[in-house]
Design a protein around this nucleic acid. Structure first.
Lengths: 205, 205
DNA sequence: ACGTACATACCAACCGTATGGTATGTACGC
DNA sequence: GCGTACATACCATACGGTTGGTATGTACGT
């Protein structure tokens, strides 16, 4: 899709660079707090290039959410937590994996679509929907392992489902990110993830 | 503090009306997405009145977080969940209370300071700190009941504390709000709160 | 093989408006 | 008459978005 040329080797990558800039800057300042000029400056492109690729700022928000969904799902698909044979171990390994990447600057480990959801859910439904798809699709990848663990360990659940537990894991992570941002301390978020892991062990083991 | 007059009976309440407007509009559009004119219009005051009470938009953000902390802590202090004699029942009643108020429009039941934290934690440290205080102080009100429940039920916790569990409840609620906004469905949030309640029961009963 | 037609990717400069913020004045209570 | 609580009018800038253009690549008929 990119198109390199002789005199301008970067040519063709403006769209991707804008999406990467959006991922980084929106996580720092939020969607409304991020200006088109911010993005152009960070990506090293002009506003003409920006509006060539995105018809509006809202369109970039949607594309950024989709870009996030694509890149993160690729990351999780190749992560090592799928290896254990016991499905419960896979779920717990997923939790460990999520915990392990909570470190450093909150702007770098927190979730783009969770952040965008908060401020766009009323004003920009298209962005909200793209964010919802990203979150729910990721949660859905956990359902088979949870369901298999329930079956294997003879868990009888009358008042909850694999789907609701999968979504709950995402709620805990999103909430943990908020605490980490508020306190500027990843450790607070990791403690919540510990509670989540303990819950799943109590529930399924 | 308010000062009524003959020709302008609303006079004196501009600051409070601005803070109420901030509480409502920032929850809909976020802090950056909310303009000073939005607030003045909703509060029915002029920009002169606005800058008489708040030296900047950031100052209003801080005041709005403090206003939120004050009004919500008053609400929770007089809520009925403190009545049970068993401290575990009080904690569970708190969860039930939080679940019960999750209904209707997400903009009305979600948390102002959780929303503001997300977009201000880098750009406006003063706002972030006010948000953190609001969240952590509220979490701290749960600690005595959790600690008492641990003692009463002989819970032996080597790897977690009453404080971390109290904060975890707030993480779950904040995360549940994000899912509710993304899906535009309070039910998703309530299911996460159910998981939280189940966790506390497994842990402390 | 080559010219034409078209599409893609980008740039520089500009525009109308909305934004946060200010300067100045006035009504009112004490 | 003095401080507080506002109102009116205004400003410099930043904002999202537009315009018109150029360079590069591709499809295709001949």
């Amino acid at each position: 899709m990119p198109r390199a040329t002789k005199i301008e080797p970067e040519r063709g990558g403006a769209r991707t660079r804008l999406l990467e800039a959006a991922r980084d800057i929106i996580r720092q300042k939020g969607f409304s707090g991020t200006t088109v000029d911010d993005l152009c400056k960070a990506a090293g492109v002009t506003k003409g290039a920006y509006f060539h690729h995105f018809s509006s700022k809202e369109a970039l928000g949607v594309a950024a959410a989709e870009f996030w969904a694509d890149t993160t799902s690729a990351l999780f698909a190749q992560a090592p937590y799928h290896k254990p044979e016991d499905p419960l171990d896979r779920v717990l390994a997923y939790i460990d994996f999520r915990k392990a990447i909570i470190e450093g600057d909150p702007a770098e480990f927190t979730c783009l679509v969770g952040t965008m959801t908060q401020e766009t859910f009323q004003s920009f439904p298209a962005i909200r929907d793209a964010c919802a798809t990203s979150i729910l699709d990721h949660a859905a990848t956990l359902e088979p392992d949870i369901a298999a663990a329930m079956k294997l360990h003879g868990t009888t659940a009358s008042d909850w489902t694999a789907q609701s537990l999968a979504r709950h894991t995402q709620a805990v992570l999103q909430g943990a990110f908020i605490l980490a941002k508020a306190t500027n301390d990843p450790a607070v978020a990791r403690e919540s993830v510990d509670h989540l892991k303990r819950y799943i062990q109590l529930l399924l083991a």
